[in-house]
Computed example of a mutant assay.
Amino acid sequence: MRELVRTNDIVLVSAIGALLDGAEINHVVLDQNMSVIEGSLGVLARRILVSDADNREARQVLTDAGLGHELRPDD
Rank of each mutant, 00 (worst) to 15 (best):
V36H: 14
L20T: 02
G22T: 10
D54G: 06
G66S: 03
V43T: 14
G68A: 08
I10E: 14
A65V: 13
L71E: 00
R72M: 14
V43A: 09
V5L: 02
R47H: 15
Q32H: 11
M34C: 06
S40C: 11
G68H: 09
V13Q: 04
R72D: 08
G68S: 09
L41D: 12
H69V: 13
G66F: 02
N8E: 05
R2E: 13
A45H: 07
R6E: 14
I25H: 11
L49V: 04
A58H: 08
V29H: 08
G17T: 04
G39Q: 10
D31A: 14
Q32W: 12
R56G: 03
E70W: 11
E24V: 11
Q32V: 07
L19C: 03
E38D: 12
D52K: 10
L62F: 04
H69I: 12
D74C: 12
A45N: 07
S51W: 01
R46Q: 15
L71D: 00
D31G: 03
L62Q: 03
I16T: 01
I48E: 01
N8Y: 00
G17M: 04
E24F: 12
E38C: 01
V11T: 12
V5K: 00
G66Q: 01
S35H: 15
G22V: 08
T7R: 03
L49D: 02
L41R: 15
R56A: 15
R59S: 12
R56N: 07
T63E: 14
G22F: 09
N55S: 14
I37S: 09
E24S: 13
